[in-house]
Design a protein around this nucleic acid. Structure first.
Length: 274
DNA sequence: CCCGCAGCCTGCGGGC
DNA sequence: TGCCCGCAGGCTGCGG
C-alpha cells in the first residue's frame, strides 16, 4: 500500500476505537516482518486506546500506559474493523486486537512484509524506524528552500530521493511518479541539480497530490482496502503510474517505464526534462 | 560514507 | 489444463 494517503485514510476511519480498551491481542502462527512477543501480547490486555497518530507510513495506536503500538502495512497489508460477533477469519489475517465494544481490528497481509511493534513511548521515538524518519510532507518546518537543501545533498536520481523516508517520509513508488510527472521533472534528474523553482514546484505538488489522494480515500491497486473492506478512489487520479504505452494526458506521446532502485518508474519523456 | 542489489513472501497474469 | 517466469504499493542487510 500503502503510502502516506492510505495510512492516513486508515487512521481517520479508525477514530471509533479511541477510548476503547483492549480485551485481547492475538497473532497468527506465521511471522510478519516484526512481531510482538507473547509477553507483549499479554501486556496489551486491559490497556486503553487514547489516541491515533501517523508517522510516515506507520500507524501509531497510543495507549493509556504511555506506550504505542506501531502497525506497518508493508506492500500488501490492510486493516479491517468489524464486529467480533458473526465475523469470519480471512486467509492472511495475522494480528488482531479485540476491544471492549465488541469490535476487532484485524491486520491482513498476504505477503507479510508488514509488521507490528510495541514502543515504550507515545511518540515511538525509541524505535529506530521512527527516530530515523525525515520530515512529514505537511510539517510546518518544511518549505521549498529546505526541500532544495535536502535534495541538493545527493547526486542520486530525484525519483529515489522522493522515496527516501530519511528525507521526507511517506512518499512511495506510486506518488513519486505522479509528483514528478506533474512537476515536469525527469525522474533521472540528480538531486544536486534541483533548483529553487523546481523545489517550489515539488513542495506544492507533494502536498497537493498527497492531500487529493487522502480526500479520495487512498489508492486501491490490488490489496489495500478501507477498514470496511471498500476500495479507495485515488487510483482514478493517477496520470502515469502503471500506464506504460498509454498516451500522455498532456502531449499524447507514450508513457515510458524505467527502473530506479529496483522499482518501476512511469514518466513522459517529452513533458519531463532532465 | 555511498550505492546497488538480493531477499523477505504470496498471488496473479502472460507465454508456451 | 498446467507450468514457469516476471512482476507487484516497502524496507533491510549485505557486499563492494
Amino acid at each position: 500500500m500503502p503510502e502516506l494517503p492510505e495510512i492516513e485514510t486508515v487512521k481517520r476511519a479508525l477514530s471509533p476505537i479511541v477510548d476503547q480498551s483492549i480485551t485481547a491481542a492475538l497473532r497468527s502462527n506465521l511471522d510478519l516482518r516484526w512481531n510482538l512477543t507473547p509477553a507483549d501480547l499479554l501486556s496489551l490486555q486491559q490497556d486503553r486506546i487514547i489516541r491515533l497518530d501517523r508517522r510516515g507510513r506507520h500507524l501509531l495506536i497510543i495507549l493509556q500506559s504511555g506506550r504505542s503500538l506501531l502497525c506497518h502495512l508493508g506492500m500488501s497489508g490492510w486493516i479491517r474493523h468489524e464486529a467480533i460477533s458473526g465475523s469470519t477469519p480471512l486467509k492472511h489475517d495475522h494480528f488482531t486486537l479485540q476491544l471492549t465494544d465488541g469490535t476487532q481490528l484485524v491486520l491482513n497481509d498476504t505477503r507479510r512484509f508488514g509488521g507490528v511493534m510495541l514502543s515504550e513511548r507515545a511518540d515511538a521515538k525509541d524505535l529506530p524506524i521512527i527516530a530515523n524518519l525525515g520530515l512529514e510532507p505537511f510539517d510546518p518546518q518544511l518549505n521549498p528552500q529546505k526541500l532544495k537543501t535536502l535534495y541538493n545533498g545527493s547526486h542520486r536520481p530525484i525519483k529515489e530521493l522522493l522515496m527516501d523516508n530519511a528525507l521526507i517520509t511517506g512518499i512511495g513508488n506510486i506518488y513519486a511518479s505522479e509528483i514528478l510527472f506533474q512537476a515536469h521533472i525527469h525522474p533521472d534528474r540528480p538531486g544536486s541539480k534541483i533548483n529553487l523553482k523546481q523545489a517550489q514546484t515539488l513542495f506544492s505538488l507533494i502536498q497537493k497530490i498527497l492531500s487529493d489522494a487522502i480526500a479520495s480515500g487512498g489508492s486501491t491497486l490490488r490489496d489495500f482496502k478501507h477498514t470496511n473492506g471498500e476500495s479507495g478512489k485515488a487510483q482514478n487520479l493517477h496520470l502515469v503510474y502503471a500506464k506504460e504505452d498509454s498516451p500522455c494526458s498532456v502531449c499524447s506521446s507514450l508513457i515510458q517505464k524505467s527502473i530506479h532502485g529496483g522499482r518501476s518508474t512511469f514518466f513522459c519523456k517529452k513533458c519531463q526534462k532532465k
